[in-house]
Design a protein around this nucleic acid. Sequence first.
RNA 1: GCUGGAGUAGCUCAGUUGGCAGAGCACGUCCUUGGUAAGGACGGGGUCACGAGUUCAAUUCUCGUCUCCAGCUCCA
Length: 574
Amino acid sequence: MNLDTLRHSCSHVMAQAVKELWPQVKLAIGPAIEDGFYYDFDKPEPFTDADLLAIEKAMQKIITQNEIFLRQEISKQDALALFKKNHEDYKVELVAKLPDQAISIYRTGDNFLDLCRGPHIQSTGQIKAFKLLSVAGAYWHGIETNPMLQRIYGTCFESQQELDEHLKNLEEAKFRDHRKLGPALGLFDIYHEEAGAGFVFYHPKGALLRMIIEDYEKKEHLKRGYYLVTTPHLMDAGLWKKSGHYDYYKENMYFTSEEGKEVVVKPMNCPGHILIYQSKTRSYKDLPIRLFELGTVYRKEKAGVLHGLLRVRGFTQDDAHIFCLPQQLEAEIKGVIDFVFETMKVFGFDSVGIELSTRPEKSIGTDEDWQKATAALEQALKEKGLAYEVNQGDGAFYGPKIDIKLKDALKRTWQCATIQCDFALPKRFNLSYIDAEGKEQQPIMLHRVLLGSLERFIGALIENYKGKLPLWLSPKQIVIIPIKESVLAYAQKVKAECEDKGLRVNIDNRNETLNKKIREAELENIPYCFIVGEREAQNNTVSIREKGSKDKYADPLEYVFFIQELVKDIKQHK
RNA sequence: GCUGGAGUAGCUCAGUUGGCAGAGCACGUCCUUGGUAAGGACGGGGUCACGAGUUCAAUUCUCGUCUCCAGCUCCA
C-alpha cells in the first residue's frame, strides 16, 4: 500500500469526522506530507485538545464502519453547483481554477464528499494506525494576506508498531532538543527578555567548542589556499545600495548613523570582501583569489521565525568569496563541494541531500549570465556524479545556488552549506582583472559557506550527538577526581602532564563524595574520569573511567601511555 | 508579521474558587575525607514576565506590552 495514499485517505476521514461534529465548518485542502497529513479548515472558534480527541473518536467510528471511498466523475459545471450548494467556498474556488473537463470527487459514508484527484484506498477500514498531533494556523494557499485557516496535523502508518516508533522518535527529538541541552550543559543561552530575542551568549564551555570548530576551519582553509580576512561590522549605507542589498533586504537590516550618514550593521560579508578584492589591480595570474572570514552578521528576522540556535538575529558564517576566471569556475565549484563533504564527515555527518536553486522573480543580472551560472553549478554536480533536486526560482537575488543539507541521527535535514555562483555583483562593482593580452576582464564570484552559521551548526551538532560530543570536540575532555586531599599534589602532576599534551582537563577538588563527582561528570558528558587515590599515586597510574562504562572501569593504567592514545584519537577527530 | 497555547526561585514543577508563596534539585555555612551515578544538618533565595484597569485587597479577574512554545509566511 502506498503510504501517501493511505495518509491522504486518512486526512479525508478526518475531514469527514470534523464535518460530522461541526457541519458548518468549511473545507480547504488536506494533503499527505512527509511524516503524515493535514487538513485545513475554516472554523471561527479554535480547535482544542479536547476537540482533537473527539475528532479521533469520530474517525475511529468511520474506520470501524469500513466505508467505501467512491470515486465519481462529474462535469466542471456540476462540480461548481455541487460545492456552491454545500457552501464549500474554498472548493468552489479550487474547481473554478481547474480546466474545463471531467472532475473527480470522492464520497465516503452517506454525507461526505470532497473534491479530490485521488487516488485513495478502497475503504476506511484499511486505516490501521493513526493519531492527530496538533493544531496550527495556516494561510489559505500559503499567502500571508489571505485569511488564516486552522490546520490539524496528524499521522498515519500501516501498523500500530510503526506509528508507535514514529511517536517515540518525536519524543526522542524533544529529548535531544538543543534548546534544552545547550543551556543544561553550560554551552550557551539566550537572554530573550534582557538582551533581546535571537542573540546568543556562549558560556565558557560553548565558547571553547566554538573555538575548536573555528580553529579547525581556519587551518583547513589555509591548507586549501584561502586567505583569512576580517571586515568591519559597520559599513556605509552607500556600499549596500551599490550591492543591491539595501533595495532587496532593507526591512531585515539594522541601521545606525554617524554624523548624519546612514550606516549599516553588516547582514552579509560579500561587500567587504569585494572591497578587499578591489583594493588593487589584479592579474589573471593572481586568480583564483579565495577570501575567507568567520564573519558575524546581523539580520532583523521576524519575531515569529526565531528558533533556538537555528534561526537567530546575530550569527557567524564561515563565509568565503572566490574570485576566479571563467575557465576556473567549474574546478572551484568542485573544490568547494569536496571541501563541504570532507568537513561534514569530520563533524560526524555523512548523509546529505543536494538542491540546485534557480533564478527567482526578484533578482538582478542578465538572463545570459543566469544561464551560464546555473549551467556551471549543474555541470559540477553532474561530473561529481551527485544526485540533486532542482528548486525552481529559489536562488539568491544575485545568482543560482547549490544547497547541501546534512541529515542528523534522526534523519532530519539541516540547511548548512551553500555554493552560489554570481555574475551580478562583479558587474555592479565593476570588478576586474588584467588578462594575458593586457585587457580588463570581469572575474566571476562564488559565494560559499560550509557549515553555514556556526550557531545553527552547533545546534545541529548538539542534537546529532544528543549532547555527547566526541572527544575532540568536548570542551572538557578529562576530569581528574582525587579521592582525598592527600593525593591532590599527585592529581596536579597528572593534570600538568595532560595539559602538556594539549588535553582539556580539570581537577574536581570539591568537598563532595566520589560517587557524586562521577555522577556529575557523567551528566556533563565528560568523556573520561581519571580517579586517583593512594594506590594510583604510589604506582604512577590513574584509574580510568570512560563515560557510559557504568560499573566497569579499567585497571589502573600508566597514564602517560593512555594520554598518548587520546592525543592520537583527537588528531583523527574521534 | 499571522493563528492558537503559555510565562510562579538559577532549573523542573506544585499552589492560590481574589486574603502571609511551596517542594525537589542547584546555591551558602558547618559536619563528614570518601574507591566508580546523589553522605548529613542548618540556611539564604520570589515585584508570581512587565504596564495599566476593576476591587477594601490582584500572582489569581480584564485590557495592553514583552518573551517563549506549535505551526503559517519569510530566510540575501
